[in-house]
Simulated scan of single mutants.
Amino acid sequence: MALADDPADGSGDTVGVEQHPGAGDQLELFPLEASETPAAPEPAADVVDAPTPTFADAAAQTLEDLRARLPLGTWLVSRVVEPHYTLLAVRSEVAVAGQTMRWDETLCRTMVGQGGARLVADVSAVPDYADRRMGRVFGVRGYTGVPLLGPGDQLLGTVCGLSRDPLDTDGFGVRSWLRVMEQHAGWLSGLLSAELAELPAQRTADHRVAQQRGDDLTGLADRRGWGFLLQREEQRAHAYAAPSGVLLLDLGATRSVGPVRRAAAAAASALAGRGSVVRLDGRQLGVLCTADDQRELRATADAVQSAVLASGCMFTSGWAVREPADGLPGAWRQAERRLMSVRRAPATA
Rank of each mutant, 00 (worst) to 15 (best):
V94A: 11
D153A: 13
L107C: 06
P53A: 06
L29D: 03
H84E: 14
T54I: 00
P53I: 06
D122G: 02
L72C: 03
F138V: 03
G135M: 04
A40W: 03
V90M: 04
P31N: 05
R136S: 15
V123T: 15
E36I: 09
V140E: 05
V90A: 09
R136F: 08
D153L: 10
L32F: 00
G116C: 01
T62S: 15
D104C: 02
A125R: 15
T106G: 04
D65C: 10
G152V: 05
Q154L: 12
L66K: 05
G113D: 11
G150F: 08
F30M: 09
V81P: 00
R132V: 05
A121P: 06
P127A: 12
G150N: 06
W75N: 02
D122F: 02
A34M: 00
L66P: 08
D57Q: 13
D65A: 15
S78H: 02
P31A: 03
G145M: 01
P147T: 11
E93H: 05
A95L: 12
L76M: 08
M111T: 13
A130T: 12
V80E: 05
G142Q: 07
R79H: 14
E82H: 13
T100F: 02
D104G: 02
D46C: 03
R91S: 14
W103I: 02
Q154T: 15
D57E: 13
S92M: 02
A45T: 10
Q154G: 13
